[in-house]
Amino acid sequence: MLTPSDLAAIWLTLKLATVTTVLLLLIGTPIAWWLARTRSWWKGPVGAVVALPIVLPPTVIGFYLLLVMGPDGVVGRFTEWAGIGLLPFTFWGLVVASVFYSMPFVVQPIQNAFEAIGERPLEAAATLRAAPLDAFFSVAVPLAKPGFITATILGFAHTVGEFGVVLMIGGNIPEKTRVVSVQIYDHVEALEYTQAHWLAGGMLAFSFLVLLALYTLNPTGRRK
């Protein structure tokens, strides 16, 4: 069965994924909105940066984040100056890394949804006296609901599944940075296969259920 340290790892993983997903919806929505509607030259470069985590090995992202957030990095100097201390090997360091790592999985579905809506309903809203921000919340967001559901599920699940970035940024500190994927790694290293099975099987079931929910509750085709 699950040991107290397994339970701590599960709790930490859920906390990390929840905080990351909430932050990503707040940060990713304006980015997705901008990417969906801008005609700026910057659309290409910004879109490419957002998509980088899809193709980069997690160790590469982790390595650079470690440098940037470390004592000699730009962000590290700022956090030390601000009295927060250094982020690597803390929970909030993991959150920052996860936000970068899971960004495309949240931004892209929302961006696609906004692009599919197009300009037309928003023009109609403007002729019905809705100011731009009002039209965003009363028309664009409700119409993009399927995109937001997909983004939330994918962002959460992808954060739960991360390993390489966590090892680079967070190390393996119980109850602070030791998430489920790292805990499984530890069990296997220690040849505790039964323990590893409980967690790994749990992750497998969790991932399957998440994707099942995604594909049945939120079909990409026409609404019935």
């Binding site: 037309r120 309903p121 023009e123 109609a124 809203a125 403007a126 002729t127 019905l128 006296r129 809705a130 100011a131 731009p132 009002d134 039209a135 028309v139 409700p142 119409l143 609901k145």
Partner: peptide, 20 residues
């Protein structure tokens, strides 16, 4: 004057009702 501040009514060729 921005569109949303103009007291007009606009009927589009494609109706553009809000699907939600």
């Amino acid at each position: 004057v921005a569109t949303h501040r103009r007291p007009l009514g606009y009927v589009f060729q494609d109706a553009r009702l809000f699907a939600h």
